[in-house]
């Protein structure tokens, strides 16, 4: 059983903004869904999904990069060739 504060914690981990009004709804749905997921407790082992193929490599050869104009074409926030992002410090 998870509670609203758990959902708030998950939202913080996921960096998904969540409003107080949304909490009860998400909490109820998560409990219903996680109850359903409990069926997985009956699966034996935790073996990972096995891959038949391995060692898919490319050679160390240069391929063209994008022109800077194309790189910055999708942002409205470029400055001297850099992307602009919110402050982190």
């Amino acid at each position: 059983m998870i509670e609203e504060k758990d959902v708030e914690h998950i939202a913080m981990l996921a960096d998904i903004g969540i409003t107080k009004e949304e909490l009860p709804g998400f909490t109820g749905q998560f409990n219903e869904i996680l109850d359903y997921f409990d069926i997985l407790d009956q699966v034996e082992g935790t073996g990972s999904f096995e891959h038949e193929r391995a060692n898919v490599f490319r050679e160390d050869e240069i391929e063209p990069s994008l022109p800077q104009d194309d790189v910055l074409a999708n942002t409205r926030d470029a400055e001297d060739g850099f992307f602009r992002a919110p402050r982190v410090m």
Partner: peptide
């Protein structure tokens, strides 16, 4: 010579920003 997961050149140090990207 190239990056770990793409063919962009690793020789970026003297170049303008965002010119060795794909």
């Amino acid at each position: 010579t190239t990056k770990l997961f793409c063919g962009c050149s690793t020789d970026y140090r003297d170049d303008p920003p965002n010119t060795h990207v794909c």
